[in-house]
């Protein structure tokens, strides 16, 4: 229910801010396309975070200003971006060595579904009419040390995205560490879900009612 999402809980910006608070000073971070990109705007002052984009740039800056876009300087979403002083360019195999080799500290991704064991489905709904596309999602969840998911708690038709078992094709199994939704922040630990923080106006009972998976209180 759309109205529910608006009245109760956090806005998308507040969700992004919650994620940003959990990214430590000095972290190397890869932000997925879409809502995860908002996280960069909320990193607290005094923390230095280096952004990695898997198409070959460490030290990604802000989105390019209109009129100064460079078609050869893009991010993983193919948006025109900038590079900060101290940035580095590299080829794709090196870029994914950073990912697969465990050198990137945090990756923030969107989700279709997250299971109570931390399985993630975010690349395909399994609809045979869709053109299948995976990009770097499977490499990221397999290689980055900490995977944060940022997502609305429920779908537009009010179905829970936090499920017992993903029904959509998996991106990775047991890969998610923490889920940030408009209702709560939930940790995945020992294949169980623990509610870390509730959004204003959200009770544990309300949260469980809107969640297919079993939740545990800290």
């Amino acid at each position: 229910m759309e109205s529910d999402n608006k009245i109760i809980g956090w806005s998308t910006g507040e969700m992004a801010q919650k994620v940003a608070m959990d990214i430590h000073d000095g972290a190397y971070v890869n932000l997925g396309i879409g809502i995860p990109e908002m996280v960069a705007g909320f990193i607290p002052e005094g923390r230095e975070v280096i952004y990695h984009t898997e198409n070959g740039l460490l030290g990604m800056g802000k989105v390019a200003e209109v009129g100064s876009e460079d078609p050869e300087l893009v991010n993983a979403g193919k948006k025109y971006v900038t590079a900060i002083p101290g940035a580095a360019y590299f080829h794709h195999a090196d870029s994914f060595a950073m990912i697969r080799g465990g050198h990137i500290d945090v990756c923030v991704l969107g989700a279709y579904q997250v299971s109570e064991e931390g399985d993630l489905a975010n690349w395909s709904t399994g609809n045979p009419n869709d053109i299948p596309a995976v990009g770097g999602a499977m490499d990221l969840v397999a290689g980055v040390k900490t995977i944060y998911v940022i997502t609305k708690h429920t779908t537009k038709t009010d179905e829970s995205k936090i499920v017992k078992q993903c029904t959509y094709p998996l991106t990775g199994k047991n890969v998610v560490s923490r889920i940030y939704t408009n209702y709560a922040i939930i940790d995945v630990r020992d294949k169980q879900l623990f509610v870390r923080e509730l959004a204003p106006g959200v009770s544990f009972e309300f949260l469980q009612k809107h969640t297919e998976a079993t939740l545990h209180q800290e």
């Binding site: 794709h92 195999a93 994914f96 770097g136 499977m138 490499d139 397999a142 290689g143 199994k173």
Partner: peptide, 25 residues
């Protein structure tokens, strides 16, 4: 997957016939 694609190409150029990756498990 993008990283697997890059590494499969790199391996092709480096004389490595195959490799193991955690992606897609």
């Amino acid at each position: 997957p993008q990283g697997t694609l890059a590494e499969r190409i790199r391996a092709g150029g480096a004389g490595v016939p195959a490799f193991y990756t955690p992606a897609t498990v």
